[in-house]
Nucleic acid binder design. Structure first.
Length: 136
DNA sequence: GCCAACGTTGGC
DNA sequence: GCCAACGTTGGC
């Protein structure tokens, strides 16, 4: 199983909005970045990830899982871009802030720190576990 | 195919 | 509001 982190401006699309979609899920679309796209291509149904809020919040807020693997992005003009479908999972008991992530040596290599701009990134098992630990 | 200029994103 | 990082575009 692979682990992922999805980043979004909560004003645009928040974890709470995702949560409201319930088991039906909601496409994670609009990605126009090749690195992020490659990550999305690699996703499998059932893969687990985190939902991160950028902007004012800057914290990991909850879990999300892939409910449908890559399909053509309905918001794109051409079929070069893809979307996946996400389902919100549990909320973290407490959000894990970017400052905490940065302060944790176990998370020093996470792309959230090294490349603040990518919207979909992969996490190693140990990075995933560490964030779970910080958030519980 | 290279590189400078520009736009966008996100943190501070 | 500013700046850094990165991606994209366009001229050559």
């Amino acid at each position: 199983m692979k682990y992922w982190l999805f980043k979004s401006e909560p004003e645009t699309w928040s974890w709470e909005m995702q949560k409201k979609k319930g088991a039906k899920g909601e496409p994670w679309s609009g990605v126009r970045n090749h690195t992020a796209k490659l990550n999305m291509v690699a996703m499998k149904k059932g893969d687990l990830g985190f939902f991160y809020h950028s902007g004012d919040e800057k914290a990991v807020v909850g879990f999300a899982s892939v409910s449908r693997p890559a399909f053509p992005d309905p918001t794109a003009d051409d079929d070069a871009w893809i979307a996946v479908e996400l389902k919100a999972g549990k909320k973290l008991r407490r959000p894990v802030s970017l400052a905490e992530v940065k302060a944790d040596p176990k998370l020093a290599n996470i792309l959230l720190v090294r490349n603040g701009r990518i919207s979909v990134m992969s996490l190693t098992d140990s990075e995933f576990d560490q964030i779970v630990k910080l958030g519980s």
